[in-house]
Write a protein that binds this DNA or RNA. Structure first.
Length: 846
DNA sequence: GCGGACTGCTTACCT
DNA sequence: ACAGGTAAGCAGTCCGCG
């Protein structure tokens, strides 16, 4: 381990100076403008305190140039912009597969490198100039946030999982035992990081209320003109309090029904001071939207009221809000992340409000307000504010603090502090990981423009107009009911393709003439035979670890629940990363954007899919459907299935697995649209309108009742009875509509505005029409809001729910919608909706 | 001036 | 601000109709 030099801000260094080894967890890194040094925030897990360790190695911000040291050092403009030194350095240029000599341009201030209009990177062509300094520092020192460290004589040593543990795992997991050479080494490194001890971090969730003179205006955090009237705290140590600014002489300090302490203040300045004390005493502070509201407001209000800077723990940067010592987690930012929403939380919440997210994940909502904030009594205000903090706390701690563990693991994988993990999308995480790996191996990180210039071209045509390249295949479903269907799918198809075909930005279309015959199917691309791709190696190892160890362990019922839940968290985190590892290379804002890599990955996926389809047919297996990486086989013959699986392993070097077995599946002619009941009595519905979340409850209820009927079906004969019950059901619903036996609310469609209402210029969809009617009565709407509307007999056919009455409803439109919803299933059963509900063709015409 | 055929926009879904 | 592929409904337009 390299020697690093650190000095702690506190004097408690004695703790480990006198022989006792002390473990600290790296929480975060930052740059201190006053001292011009990087510093680390280290958690002492026993005292639950944060220690600040200042860098004493003299590390400085820098970037690289391909110009010579002479040329650069004679340039006065560079010095004017803050360059203080130059040094020659050799790096390996992966893109051109050769060593390059670069000049390192060193500065005292990160802003001299980048971030200002007159920074060095705006003046000359620079490499590695876009890395935030606090991350650059971590990469250079090989430091990984979320990992434990010991400190001895100013040297930090990472405490990874021990070799014995790692070797045990590698020998127990078949996937990992097969790894050799470089791959085995990579797997070993990952396991030693992922299996390391993790800390329990003390935290407090906070929420503030500000008294705005005008109720329609949200108070501005930058101005912080209005008084803070309430600050709520819910701590992991049991601390529950609401600080309230007294407005009238009513109550005294007390403990309430909800179990929080109510503390009243005459003076706002004193209240903030005490709040700052509380905040400073926790290593981690959580908020909902604290980056953009609560923390900047508190910070600026503190300044405004004349609280000394050294008492104010909040630091505001361009990225968000953080704390001098502790870290700040903004759950709003985190839950906004699409990957987190879809892969970590299975799309359980749809809207990014505290109300919607906590309802979906912990089954609790906010306190309902029936009057403006300014009219609440002190007690009501306290209760409202407290619940917001309590919900943030719940989200952080539910399911054995799953979220915190997820953040720790994502920090380790991405090599980013938890705070940065919350504020970046999955492309930022992968970028950070790959940057770290470049630095570790002495590789030059390519500039986005040179990468694009050399690897920008694609060779296939997308099915969808406007897309950059061709994607996955979907097999035509065989319409009808199929009993005894086994679903096979490729385990992590795209990451496996990356691994097995050696795909990486430097290996696809590499510079070597002799590799050009190593063609990727269906594309004009070739892949390198001489050098192992970095991305292939890293993603490949993560894939093997997930498939070979964490995935099976997360479902191992013989393990203790706490152990299993840890495996589940790691498994999920890996899934999020792996799922995106292909897509980011086709994402034009990704810093290592490389369309041929994404295109090649998809092409290999299609190749594997087609070949397997062909092989299944050769084996005499009927394939009734397939999508991207899955095949629906009309057989239960274990021998045949086994044969196909081993063929895939031997010929394609890919793992085919039995995903599930359906007692029966129902297909119409539509792709991505089916219903199935597994042998474990689980009803799967994919893509059908009946499961889409914007449809009215009225239709959804009928659909769910239909599913209950299907669940009971064991044999083909049972379908007859199911059809009879279905007919009764549909008739009942039909006449409910006809006779007006419905609640208006149950007929509401709920559709999300994807942009501000005024941005819809090309067409005006129904939910936008409804939204405009709401705006006409003074309701403010914006992107992300869900509009509830009903279909009416008005000229434009729509009204927002709150402006509609039952007599406005266009019943025929709802019958049409029911018809099309159920036809997706009835088609396959050879049933006609209108005949079933007993409507003559004439009547349905009227 | 009206209505059917068509295209494009939009949302929600699948892998 | 990971990707492409599919379904469905509606908005808007074109075209034919003496």
């Amino acid at each position: 381990m390299a020697q690093y030099s650190y000095r702690a801000q506190q004097t408690s260094l004695e703790d480990w100076a006198n022989g006792g080894e002390k473990t600290l967890y790296l929480l975060s890194s930052a740059y201190d403008g006053h001292t011009g040094k990087a510093y680390l925030k280290m958690l002492d897990p026993e005292k639950n305190e944060v220690l600040i360790l200042y860098d004493e190695s003299g590390h400085k911000p820098y970037c690289y140039s391909k110009l010579s040291i002479e040329e650069l050092s004679n340039n006065q403009e560079l010095k004017a912009r803050g360059a203080v030194g130059f040094a020659e350095e050799k790096k390996y240029d992966l893109l051109h597969d050769k060593e390059v000599t670069l000049t390192k341009i060193i500065a005292n201030d990160p802003l001299a490198i980048g971030g200002r209009s007159n920074s060095i990177r705006e003046f000359i062509m620079a490499w590695e100039a876009d890395i935030p300094y606090h991350l650059c520092y971590l990469y250079d020192k090989g430091l990984i946030p979320g990992m434990p460290y010991t400190i001895t004589d100013g040297r930090l040593d990472m405490v990874t999982a021990n070799d014995w543990t790692v070797n045990q795992i590698m020998s127990m997991a078949k996937q990992l035992a097969e790894a050799k050479g470089e791959d085995a080494e990579e797997v070993r490194r990952w396991l030693s990081i992922l299996e390391a001890q993790y800390p329990k971090i003390k935290h407090v969730s906070i929420d503030i209320e500000v008294l705005a003179p005008v109720t329609t205006r949200v108070p501005s955090p930058s101005k912080a003109e209005d008084p803070v009237v309430a600050i709520s705290f819910v701590g992991s140590d049991g601390f529950k309090a609401v600080f309230l600014l007294k407005r009238e002489k009513t109550t005294t300090n007390t403990t309430t029904d909800e179990g929080f302490e109510l503390k009243l203040f005459d003076d706002e300045k004193n209240m903030l001071r005490e709040a700052f004390n509380v905040i400073s005493s926790y290593p981690m502070v959580a908020t909902f939207n604290g980056d953009d509201f609560d923390l900047p407001y508190l910070k600026n209000r503190g300044d405004k009221l004349g609280i000394p800077k050294e008492e104010n723990p909040i630091i505001i940067s361009r990225e968000g809000a953080t704390l001098r010592k502790g870290i700040h987690v903004d759950l709003y930012r985190l839950f906004l992340n699409k990957s987190v929403q879809v892969y970590a939380f299975d799309n359980k919440y749809r809207e990014n409000t505290l109300e919607a997210i906590s309802r979906a994940l912990v089954g609790k909502g906010k306190v309902e307000l029936n009057k403006p904030m300014s009219e609440l009594s002190l007690e009501e205000l306290a209760r409202y504010s407290f619940w917001d903090a309590a919900l943030v706390h719940e989200l952080l701690t539910f399911n054995d603090s799953l979220l915190i563990k997820l953040l720790i693991i994502l920090a380790r994988i991405s090599r980013m502090p938890i705070e940065d993990v919350c504020r970046h999308g999955v492309s930022g995480w992968i970028k950070s990981l790959l940057y770290y790996e470049h630095r570790r191996r002495g590789y030059l990180i390519p500039r986005q423009d040179e990468l694009l210039q050399e690897k920008g071209a694609t060779t296939t045509k997308a099915v969808i107009e406007g897309k950059k390249y061709r994607g996955a295949l979907v097999a035509e479903p065989m319409p009808g009911v199929h009993f005894g269907v086994t679903v096979l799918d490729f385990a992590s198809l795209y990451p496996s393709a990356l691994k097995e075909w050696n795909l990486s930005y430097e290996t696809v279309r590499c510079v070597h003439e002799e590799c050009k015959d190593n063609i990727i199917p269906e594309t004009g691309h070739w892949v390198c035979k001489k050098r192992r791709g970095l991305q292939s190696l890293v993603i490949g190892a993560l894939r093997d670890i997930r498939i070979g160890w964490y995935k099976p362990k997360s479902g191992d019922k013989t393990l203790q629940p706490e152990v299993r839940s840890w495996y589940e968290v790691v498994q999920r985190a890996l899934k999020v990363l792996l799922n995106a590892s292909y897509g980011v290379f086709g994402f034009s804002n990704f810093q290592l954007y490389c369309p041929p890599v994404a295109e090649s990955t998809a092409a290999i996926g299609r190749y594997a899919f087609k070949m397997t389809l062909k092989k299944a047919k050769e084996l005499g297996i009927q394939v009734v459907y397939g999508d991207t990486d899955s095949l629906f086989l009309k057989t239960n013959n274990p021998k045949l299935i086994e044969e196909l699986i081993s063929w895939a392993k031997n010929t394609l070097r890919l793992d085919l697995e039995v995903d599930k077995v359906y007692r029966y599946v129902v297909f119409s002619t539509r792709k991505k649209n089916y219903l199935g009941v597994t042998t474990k009595d689980v009803v799967d519905v994919k893509g059908l309108t009946g499961k889409k979340r914007h449809i009215p409850t009225f239709i959804k209820e009928a659909f769910d009742k239909m599913l209950e009927e299907f669940k009971k079906v064991q044999t083909e004969e049972d379908f007859e009875r199911a059809k009879q019950n279905l007919q009764n059901l549909l008739r009942t619903w039909y006449y409910k509509l006809k006779n007006g036996q419905f609640e208006l609310d149950d007929l509401a469609f709920r559709v999300m505005l994807s942009k501000m209402p005024e941005k819809y210029t090309k067409t005006t969809p129904q939910h936008v029409k409804a939204a405009r009617k709401l705006e006409a009565i003074g309701i403010q709407l914006s992107a992300g809001d869900v509009i509830s509307f009903v279909k009416t007999k008005d000229k434009d056919g729509v009204r927002p729910l709150q402006l509609a009455r039952p007599e406005h409803i266009d019943v025929e439109k709802y019958i049409d919608y029911m018809r099309s919803t159920f036809e997706q299933v009835l088609d396959a059963l050879g049933i006609d909706f209108d005949k079933m509900v007993g409507v003559s063709s004439l009547e349905s015409f009227m």
